[in-house]
Nucleic acid binder design. Sequence first.
DNA 1: TTGAAAGCGCTAACAC
DNA 2: GTGTTAGCGCTTTCAA
Lengths: 346, 346
Amino acid sequence: MHRMASDTAEKPHRIRNISELAKLAGVSAGTVSRALAGKDLVNRETRERIQALAREHGFRPNQMASRLRTGQTGVIGVVIPLGHEQKQHISDPFFMTLLGHLADELTEGGYELMLSRVIPAQKVDWLERIVDSGMLDGVLMIGQSNQIETIERIAEIYRPLVVWGTWREGQKHCVVGTDSFAGGRLAARHLIARGCRRLAFFGDTRGLEIEQRLDGARAEAAESGTGAVIEAYPTHLSAQEMSDQIASDLTQMDPAVDGIFAASDVIAMATLRLLHETGRKVPGDIALVGFDDLPLATQTVPQLTTIHQDIAGGARAMVASLMRRIAGEDVPSTVMAPELIVRESA
Amino acid sequence: MHRMASDTAEKPHRIRNISELAKLAGVSAGTVSRALAGKDLVNRETRERIQALAREHGFRPNQMASRLRTGQTGVIGVVIPLGHEQKQHISDPFFMTLLGHLADELTEGGYELMLSRVIPAQKVDWLERIVDSGMLDGVLMIGQSNQIETIERIAEIYRPLVVWGTWREGQKHCVVGTDSFAGGRLAARHLIARGCRRLAFFGDTRGLEIEQRLDGARAEAAESGTGAVIEAYPTHLSAQEMSDQIASDLTQMDPAVDGIFAASDVIAMATLRLLHETGRKVPGDIALVGFDDLPLATQTVPQLTTIHQDIAGGARAMVASLMRRIAGEDVPSTVMAPELIVRESA
DNA sequence: TTGAAAGCGCTAACAC
DNA sequence: GTGTTAGCGCTTTCAA
């Protein structure tokens, strides 16, 4: 019944496009376009009148058309390739944290974010499809997975592409990431320094970054002159499988293992729980170092000693590099130094 | 500039649009369009020749143009409004898990996903801007925050909108979510059944869902006839502040508190650690129930007893409802039943 | 300061 | 089967 009141206002027929608004305002479409864009080529009075009219009718110019016309999409693609581990969920906390920061940065820069979670194995030309879609001003990739060749190939012909990941000698594409090898060294050095000699590495080395973390740790062990050794255990990335895998690794591995380097905080957290269940004290019986320094690393019992990656800074660097590449500049890769954060688990 | 040798193809000059390809193939643009779309109106031989040519030159039709023309964007907007808690990061695990599932569902349905993280306070017409952008076939919202009025207003005029959240009597917009009130009841009932009488609730009740969880718990306590009482403590959502807040709540609250209902697993996890630090055993000294049943709930020590929300099922329901709304159907809200998962913390 | 007109690249109705 | 044509809704010269 109170509804009647609102009907007294003449039913504002919905404006569908700029020329309908133009007709209403008694000007041409061009003028409306200019007015709505806030250009000062149009008379201030006319401009404000048109803007008011648009607001009143809830009209907003069609972005698709505008973008087609200008050739600028204002959209950045963020893609997460799931190459070697299809079960890996997009909700992987590290990716999500990075995605969050990316979203913040992009939004701030006035860009929209188009998210693709792709399984490269399903389509050979997955990346071509994305960069050639005509919908994107640039592409940000989270993780290289096992798709380095594809990335290199596309990077040759598509400049506005920046990838999160570890840098490798001689590569052509622009990456932003932490020095995984150095991170691995840091972890092993800490473990060895506190007396560990038989180390276990938990992680899926099919990914380049993880492989380099292991390589770094191995290099450190070898050069330590302590005779410390590292045995690697492949770890699946999906939650349940990871748990099962770690549980079985834990029972089957050499009981003399006194230190574990987990390739991520998520793996470390699962390991922590499983260790607790089998009655082994951390760090008393076994020391444990994680990787990433996610927020959750401070919430475990004991808190995780881990290798810090500057995720927010990385996101900023990715977006900054991408912007410069969109502008035509050639931007080199960014390698950030990892940092050991000593908490309680090692 | 003159075109000297056009046919010898010494340099694979990049094809820029459909008519360039048409010229190359010796057909019209229309035919190329049809061929590339795989329509069987064109001669199979011609079609294959054109497709081969396109592949050879790495040509892909401009999506922006195609979408403008057809009026179908193939893009779904996923928006996360950060109303009452601007510090809440997009990487909130619950949102991210839901987002992951949404991405899976949408990708499967052939849709792209455009992600917006918005702070409604900064722009009154934030939702209008999104739905009127002309870039989206539909919008999915994760969480209602304190923006119910805005959502209701837009839902009246924009049909393809589905929101994750709790359902409230008389609302107009389409939500998919768990019955928060029932979830609150479940948590309180369990706590009371195991003997707790002085309960604390940790959560930010400015969000409708959280408020209803508390209401449900209070209703259950009142009806239990046991004299159980619940005191609520507001909790901030950003990681560090949350921790500090809980720490101070824990020291200041009535020492007789024997059960805690945390509004989310993330809050529960932080509480667990803080309780441990102050030497209180869970569930021995204090029982603890979380909410959400995120993967991390199984990785804490002790594992979290929590209220399960079917996130994957919810994502599926959201996408399904949205598709039907896009098709013009009117789809009612979906309320899923919460489920108590008893693990170790209570 | 404004209007007219020419597209951006693609699709689909209508010819032939 | 394939070509022609007329836009989708907007921006931007070019004129006036």
